[in-house]
Design a protein around this nucleic acid. Structure first.
Lengths: 124, 124
DNA sequence: CTAGGAGCTAGAGTCGGCTCTAGGTCAACT
DNA sequence: AGTTGACCTAGAGCCGACTCTAGCTCCTAG
């Protein structure tokens, strides 16, 4: 039910350093500690962490994730701001996908050129 | 026909600092200079710069772009290596797009939730 | 003939996001 | 009792990619 930081690191792929760093940066609320002062992560923490990982993977900066977390922790009444934050990021992700697709086109064209060139060479 | 670094900066959106920096990093071959030692960019430089910008936008690291540039400059005989380099990056871009799409799904779901919640609130 | 503006170089500084170190606590084996 | 190993904190260090500064040259306009 409760996981140590090492176990969490193992199953998320983050390092223990990064987990502590994220907490320090306010990406999530202070994790509950056991008698000896060690972090004990529960399922909710894990879920949120997975969200953080996704948001990071999509390039959301740490301060934005922190802000979002703060809003969620504050509870009801700021849903509009959360929505703003999410929509803004949604837009950026869409742009990124667009940009990446353009890059992919470029690269694929070039790959095509070289493939043609190489097969030509091997014949000639 | 020949553009100054300032003009290139203006029409690419990069800063003059970045243009010099890219050259120093070997992203492209030393740009021709005028009598006074100032850079004069020609169309070919511009084209290559656009490619660089795309590759950067898709997260290709500077050393990889430099390597690709070196291969192209060396001329025939290394097409296989160029192809490898491009294919590798192509793969990474595809992964990125996949990852971003997953993020977009997550965000869009959340946006949906908050939109529902907010419209619910405004009714009641 | 001088003041401004664009360019030049070498090198220092910044920023985001980790990543690692030093020095310590604690519980479990041996 | 001693050693190991996972954990703790505070803070230093690192890396990639810029970004800026200082001090210079050159050209043009007034």
């Amino acid at each position: 039910m409760g996981l140590s930081i090492g176990q969490v690191a193992e199953r998320t792929g983050l390092s223990v350093h990064t987990l502590r760093f994220y907490e320090k940066e306010g990406l999530f609320s202070p994790v509950v500690r056991d008698a000896g002062g060690r972090r004990v992560y529960d399922d909710e923490d894990l879920d949120w962490l997975q969200v953080c990982i996704r948001l990071r993977a999509s390039g959301m900066p740490l301060p934005a994730i922190r802000r979002y977390n703060e809003l969620v922790r504050q509870g009801h009444g700021n849903e509009a701001e959360r929505l703003d934050l999410l929509r803004e990021h949604q837009e950026r992700v869409r742009e990124q996908i667009g940009e990446l697709s353009a890059c992919l086109d470029l690269i694929s064209r070039k790959v095509g050129v070289y493939e043609g060139r190489l097969s030509g060479c091997s014949l000639g």
